[in-house]
Design a protein around this nucleic acid. Structure first.
Length: 420
DNA sequence: TCTGGGGTCCTAGGACCC
DNA sequence: TCTGGGGTCCTAGGACCC
């Protein structure tokens, strides 16, 4: 069997773990720049607030005291995620961290009652040790485990653990699952399938698989198999990352190339730092710019381009230089840009970097690597003390709106003492 | 006024190869 | 005039996930 452990309303639960006064209240957590709602407590879900709602549409509720709002605090969520994952690793034979708040737990060879027992104990342990509520779904395929997890969350009678381990339960669960709630069916396919009379997951598996394949391709077929009880999504999903992206929307629109240079340099430096943290190097640096798509009165421009490096690298200066070159090749005067980003791709292991025969820059590369090591010693996630002059003073994420941020509970002694 | 960030994978079409 | 069959690689765009 495969279990899926998923934290309930994760970002909200992280806020509550350090601010117990938020328990039982309607709470939402906002995206960067305080843009839109990305996490909701059960109470705010019950008020009808949808995922992705722009904050200004619910701001009145906050002003009236009917809703509590927090800016997102990814340092805090990352810390709590690591703690939850580490408890899972101590407990299950294998852990595939699928996202910040959920992990697949392949448990072949463990019988169902034992797996259920372990899962119930683990939920209690995670709650006690981290304050985070977790639900577990158990089934033979990952897609069915997702469905089981939905039920575990929805019906308190399961006490956090729901199992689909025979055909009777599987068909019952499929009949109760709206097609749009199925993992792998998104906002494009959901309405289309409903138009064809496919309203539940059960309707979906009752279609001939050939018809699914010709209409939806390999991914549709995989979902169909998984719902039918045949494993089609395997653990290969979790490997070394294939791309690393750092991007932000700006609080205001930017048209000045000098200002864009600083932002892009910041994003590129952050990508280089992430590469070094995981022991990787990249061959390609891609830069993109977006104008504000909501301003229909303004001219739009969404350029992007990729610069290829002769040698895979992860030093700050080389990645930043490449990104600035890319920026200059796509930038056009007269547009107001709202967002920019840097993506590094063609990632390989640091130790596997292949030199080139006539590398005139070899000495420079060694120096840059040494410089990057010094930067890594001085810089942390929350404080960028040593930067290139092309970057902005302060932190790469400065200038984004965070008006409702809670305290850095997991990283500051002062605040931890305050909590105590 | 305000509308996120970070990923993965697949597909179709063009350019090119023999 | 007629204009195959089998590939690879790259890119852009679409679809999905949390």
């Amino acid at each position: 069997m495969i279990a899926l452990a998923d934290c309930n309303n994760f970002f909200v639960s992280c806020e509550r773990a350090f601010q117990p006064q938020l328990e039982g209240k309607p709470v939402v957590v906002l995206s960067n720049n305080d843009g839109c709602v990305v996490a909701r407590s059960n109470e705010s879900k019950a008020m009808g607030i949808k995922m992705g709602t722009p904050f200004f549409q619910v701001k009145d509720l906050v002003d009236e005291g009917k809703l509590v709002v927090r800016s997102s605090n990814y340092t805090l969520y990352g810390d709590l995620s690591r703690r939850v994952m580490s408890i899972l690793r101590d407990t299950y034979p294998a852990v595939e961290a699928y996202s910040i708040d959920e992990a697949f737990l392949p448990s072949d060879g463990i019988d169902v009652p034992t797996l259920q027992h372990i899962s119930r104990e683990t939920i209690v342990k995670i709650r006690r040790w981290t304050g985070i509520p977790v639900s577990v779904g158990i089934a033979h395929t990952r897609t069915l485990a997702k469905i089981a997890n939905h039920f575990a969350k929805k019906y308190p009678a399961y006490h956090g653990v729901c199992t689909i381990d025979n055909d009777e339960k599987r068909l019952k669960a499929l009949s109760l699952t709206p097609i749009d709630d199925v993992w792998g069916i998104g906002w494009r396919w959901g309405p289309k399938l409903r138009k064809w009379g496919v309203n539940t997951a059960l309707d979906f598996v009752n279609i001939n698989s050939g018809a699914i394949y010709s209409a939806m391709g390999i991914n549709g077929l995989r979902t169909w198999k998984e719902l039918s009880g045949i494993r089609a999504i395997t653990s290969e999903v979790i490997q070394r990352r294939q791309s690393i992206c750092t991007s932000r929307s700006f609080a205001d629109m930017i048209s000045d190339i000098g200002e864009l240079e600083k932002r892009v340099a910041d994003f590129a430096a952050k990508c280089a730092q992430k590469l070094r943290q995981e022991g990787s190097a990249a061959y390609c640096v891609c830069v993109f710019l977006y104008t504000n798509r909501f301003r229909e009165d303004l001219r739009q421009h969404y350029p992007c381009t990729t610069v290829k490096l002769p040698v895979a690298c992860n030093s700050t200066k080389e990645i930043v230089d490449a990104a600035l070159m890319a920026l200059h090749s796509i930038y056009l005067e007269g547009f107001q840009y709202k967002k920019a980003g840097v993506v590094v791709t063609d990632i390989i292991e640091e130790e596997a970097v292949q030199g080139v025969l006539f590398d005139y820059d070899l000495e420079m590369r060694d120096k840059q690597d040494a410089l990057s090591k010094v930067m890594d010693r001085l810089n942390t996630d929350s404080a960028q003390l040593l930067r290139l002059a092309t970057q902005r003073p302060g932190h790469y994420a400065d200038g984004i709106r965070r008006e409702h941020c809670s305290k850095p509970f997991s990283t500051s002694w002062k605040d931890m003492i305050e909590v105590k």
